[in-house]
C-alpha cells in the first residue's frame, strides 16, 4: 500500500493518522462506472415506463420519464452516498469512500453539497484534483470532504517470535514474503528468497531452526521458526 499517497491528520489525543487519499485515476474510474450505472438506470426507467404505458394515460408516461431522469441526474450520487455513508456503486467497486477532512463519516448535508455541484465539476473538477494535494474537487471543498481508499484491515501473517537484532525492515520483509509466498508463480525465485531468509536466521538465531526440515520445506520452516500466525 506504500504506493498510495497519504495525508496526515491529527486524530484524537494528537495521534497522527494518515488518510489514504484516492487519486484522480481511481476516482475517475469510479465516476465512469457510476455514470454507466446512471445510464443503465435511465434506460431501464424508460423501458419500465414504456411497459406501463399501456396502463397509463399517454399524458403520464412522458411526465414520469422527465421526473425520473431528473431524480437520477441529481439524486443518484447524493442518495447513494447518504444511504451508504459515503459510497456509490462505482466507489464500492473501486473501494473508495467519502470521509470528512477529519476522517469521520460525513453527514447528509456535506454529501448533498458535494454532489450538487457535480455538473460544474465535470468541467473544472479534474484540473482542481490534479492541483490539490488532497485531490479535492469543487464539491469536496464545499462539503469539507475527501475521498479515500477504503480497504478492510488485512489479515496478514504476523510473526510471533523475533530473532535478536531484527528491526522493522526485516520483520516487514519476512511478513510480506510469507503473505505472498503461496501466490507467487516463480517457484525458483520463491525458494531463493526463502533461502536468503533462512541464511539470515542461521546467522542471527540458529536455535530457532533446530529440528526443522529447511531443505524440503523452507517456507514452512520459516513460518514455524518465527511462529507466524494468520
Amino acid at each position: 500500500m506504500s504506493e498510495i499517497r497519504r495525508e496526515s491528520i491529527l486524530g484524537l489525543d494528537n495521534i497522527r493518522l494518515d488518510l489514504p487519499i484516492a487519486g484522480i485515476g481511481s476516482r475517475s474510474l469510479a465516476a465512469f462506472l457510476d455514470y454507466l450505472v446512471v445510464m443503465a438506470l435511465a434506460f431501464l426507467w424508460v423501458f419500465l415506463v414504456g411497459l406501463l404505458m399501456a396502463r397509463l394515460t399517454p399524458a403520464w408516461a412522458p411526465a414520469l420519464v422527465i421526473v425520473g431522469w431528473f431524480l437520477l441526474e441529481w439524486g443518484y450520487f447524493a442518495g447513494m452516498e447518504v444511504a451508504t455513508g459515503g459510497r456509490t456503486l462505482g466507489k464500492m467497486a473501486v473501494k473508495l469512500r467519502v470521509v470528512t477532512a477529519e476522517g469521520g463519516t460525513p453527514g447528509p448535508g456535506a454529501l448533498l453539497a458535494r454532489n450538487l455541484v457535480r455538473s460544474l465539476d465535470l468541467i473544472f473538477g479534474v484540473l482542481l484534483m490534479v492541483l490539490d494535494p488532497l485531490s479535492r474537487r469543487l464539491g469536496d471543498r464545499l462539503g469539507g470532504t475527501v475521498v479515500v481508499h477504503d480497504r478492510p484491515p488485512e489479515a496478514a501473517p504476523v510473526l510471533g517470535r523475533v530473532p535478536p537484532g531484527w528491526g522493522p525492515r526485516e520483520l516487514a520483509l519476512v511478513e510480506a514474503f510469507l503473505a505472498r509466498a503461496g501466490g507467487m508463480d516463480d517457484m525458483a525465485a520463491t525458494w531463493e528468497m526463502a533461502d536468503r531468509i533462512l541464511d539470515r536466521l542461521r546467522r542471527d538465531a540458529p536455535e530457532l531452526l533446530e529440528g526443522l526440515d529447511t531443505r524440503n520445506d523452507p517456507i514452512g520452516s520459516i513460518r514455524r521458526a518465527l511462529q507466524a500466525e494468520g
Binding site: T100, G109, R151
Partner: peptide
C-alpha cells in the same frame, strides 16, 4: 507506526484506526 513501521501489525493497526475514526467521529446522521 513509530517503532515497527511497515510491519503487518502496523498496517493492520493503521486500517483499524482509520475505520474506527470514520465510525466514531464525523457528522453522523442528525
Amino acid at each position: 507506526a513509530a517503532r515497527f513501521p511497515g510491519t503487518a501489525a502496523a498496517r493492520r493497526l493503521q486500517a483499524l484506526a482509520l475505520a474506527g475514526t470514520r465510525r466514531l467521529t464525523g457528522e453522523g446522521r442528525r
